[in-house]
Structure formats: structure tokens, C-alpha cells
């Protein structure tokens, strides 16, 4: 069984968000890059658990980006991927990313393709669904549980107003979120072996840009907190009722 796990590089969750070059680019000065938490904690770790149960499982990692993604993909290899591919394209349009991954998947024929539910930088929630359309595979989004019995998967997923459990046959694409697995820390052996695992760099196919990020802006700053003394709770209620008009 071959699993493809899609890995995205994102700024660390505590990063200061700022922009440069006339607000057209993310200012990465001093930013630490991590594996997008949804890709790592949920998709990748669940794939590793499946491999621990069945040694035949091969975990292939893929990322779309420039050479600055290599440290992040090495970290994912240290956690437990078998091999990795980086498609050398820096265009971050979701459709481009999905098209690059689908192009690799068309020749490699994976049984299962896993993504995080979204990235914490662009929050688009779209790459997994787009890959599934390009490959004409079923797609199950926002999965919180995934079990496999031969080629039949049982998946619990979030739906509007609750959750449901569904059954379907491989191959498929799934997007993963909290519940799938627990976070792990790479061990020394993993880190050492990651250095020798293959990381292939392939050139991108040509994809027409459907969208273009022009520039960024910050939300207006809060006016500052109005503090109410702890013994004047009625005043807080009055402010919420008359000033903010929210209760």
C-alpha cells in the first residue's frame, strides 16, 4: 500500500505576522518554519501509525515549493516518511499546488492521499479537494478518525452540525484534523536516518495561474481594553448592552 502525505511549510504558530516590499510579500525575517500542524500531527502521524501496523505500507511525502522547504521535509522524514519529493515551484496558488501533486500521483498511483484540513498561513482548505477532482478519486474532508480493513476505509468526519461515519473503498483523498492522531516528536534515530532517505527534486508542470496574491494588510488595531472593576459587574453589562450592543 502506498500513501502520499502532502506537506506544507508554514511559519511557526507564534510568528509575528508582518509584510514587506510594499506589503506584497510575507516578511520572513526571524521566522521559524514548521511543518503545517494539520499535515504533521494528523495526516503524517496517522500514516506512520498505519505503517506501524503493516510494514508493507510505504509513506511518500510531497511538498511544492523552493529549496527553502528542504529542512521542513527532512523533519517530516525524521518523523517517519520513507521518501520525499519536492516539486520545485514557488507559486502558492492552491490550483497550482494541487496540479503539481496530481501530476506526480498520476504516475505513482497511490492508494491513499492525505492532507491537513488547511494550512495555517493561507487557510484555504482547498488542495486536497482539488487533487481529488484532478484524479477523479473520492474525497473525504475534515476526517477525525481513519481505519483501514483491507481496501475498505472507515472514516469519521465533521459535517455541518455534527459528525458522521462513512465507508468507502481505496483509492481516495482525505483531509485530516484533530482526533486523527497525537503529536509526536522525532527521535534521534529518525533524525539520523532522515539524512539518507531520498529527497527527489522534480521540475513543475506548467499551470496557468487562476488567482494571484496582490498584497496583504493587517486588521485595524483594537482601540484598547476598557477595564471595569471586579465589584462593578453591572457596569460591564451596561456597556455590553448600550455601547457594544451585543447583548
Amino acid at each position: 500500500m502506498k500513501i502520499l502525505v502532502c506537506i506544507s511549510k508554514t511559519p511557526d504558530t507564534t510568528s509575528r505576522i508582518a509584510f514587506k516590499d510594499n506589503n506584497t510579500k510575507f516578511d520572513d525575517a526571524g521566522v521559524q518554519w514548521i511543518i503545517n500542524p494539520y499535515d504533521e500531527w494528523y495526516a503524517l502521524v496517522r500514516a506512520i501509525e498505519l505503517k506501524e501496523k503493516d510494514a508493507q505500507v510505504i509513506i511518500h511525502l510531497i511538498t511544492v515549493g523552493g529549496p527553502d522547504c528542504d529542512p521542513v521535509i527532512r523533519k517530516a522524514l525524521a518523523l517517519g516518511g520513507d521518501l520525499a519529493t519536492r516539486v520545485n515551484s514557488t507559486d502558492s496558488d492552491s490550483f497550482n499546488i494541487a496540479s503539481q501533486i496530481a501530476a506526480v500521483a498520476k504516475t505513482e498511483k497511490y492508494d491513499l492521499i492525505m492532507t491537513g484540513k488547511e494550512t495555517i498561513d493561507f487557510n484555504s482548505s482547498s488542495v486536497g479537494a482539488m487533487i481529488s477532482e484532478l484524479l477523479e478519486y473520492p474525497f473525504v474532508s475534515l476526517a477525525t478518525k481513519f481505519d483501514l480493513n483491507n481496501d475498505i476505509a472507515t472514516i469519521t468526519r465533521e459535517i455541518e452540525g455534527g459528525e458522521e461515519t462513512v465507508e468507502l473503498k481505496l483509492p481516495m483523498v482525505i483531509s485530516c484534523q484533530k482526533g486523527m492522531a497525537e503529536q509526536r516528536i522525532p527521535n534521534m534515530r529518525g533524525i539520523m536516518s532522515a539524512r539518507t532517505k531520498p529527497l527527489n527534486v522534480v521540475e513543475p508542470i506548467s499551470v496557468a495561474a487562476t488567482t494571484e496574491y496582490l498584497n496583504f494588510s493587517m486588521p485595524p488595531a483594537k482601540a484598547g481594553v476598557k477595564l471595569v472593576p471586579a465589584d462593578q459587574v453591572a457596569e460591564l453589562v451596561r456597556l455590553l448592552h448600550e455601547e457594544a450592543k451585543v447583548i
Binding site: P11, I120, D121, Y213, L214, N215, F216, S217, M218, P219
Partner: peptide, 10 residues
């Protein structure tokens, strides 16, 4: 974008 910390014009 950036989990509500910024906006992008696309």
C-alpha cells in the same frame, strides 16, 4: 489569511 491575523487581496 494567517488564521485571522491578516488579510490578502487576491
Amino acid at each position: 489569511v494567517f488564521s485571522g491575523k491578516a488579510f490578502a487581496n487576491v
